[in-house]
């Protein structure tokens, strides 16, 4: 999945992760995986908890005007799944 809309949303998801005060540091290997659109990384691996999900939603709404609920984050539990959801695309596509 490499549509411009998807890649743009993936960048926003990464920005929201980088700005999230509730998530700890990532290993270089994980950072490399996060930044590679061909690969994926689950929010669980990144240490997302309920607080991190709320911070994620707040950032997306504040910075990009994207309204998202914590429940929607829970049901799209990875960078690529969330990017696809925000881009209006099927994660399997």
């Amino acid at each position: 999945m490499t549509s411009p809309a998807y890649l743009a949303m993936r960048e926003r998801v990464l920005a929201a992760i980088a700005a999230n005060p509730s998530i700890g540091p990532n290993s270089p290997a994980m950072l490399e995986r996060m930044n590679d659109p061909a690969r994926d990384c689950s929010f669980e691996e990144l240490g997302f908890d309920s607080l991190a999900r709320m911070e994620f939603c707040i950032f997306l709404e504040t910075e990009f005007g994207i309204t998202l609920t914590s429940g929607e984050v829970e049901t799209r539990p990875s960078i690529n799944a969330m990017a696809a959801y925000l881009a209006g695309e099927s994660a399997a596509g």
């Binding site: 607080l51 709320m54 939603c57 707040i58 709404e61 309204t67």
Partner: peptide, 14 residues
């Protein structure tokens, strides 16, 4: 009014 409004207040409350 928005999820972000709620989440900010929830975090502050916690």
């Amino acid at each position: 009014r928005t999820p972000a409004d709620f989440y900010r207040l929830q975090i502050l409350t916690e």
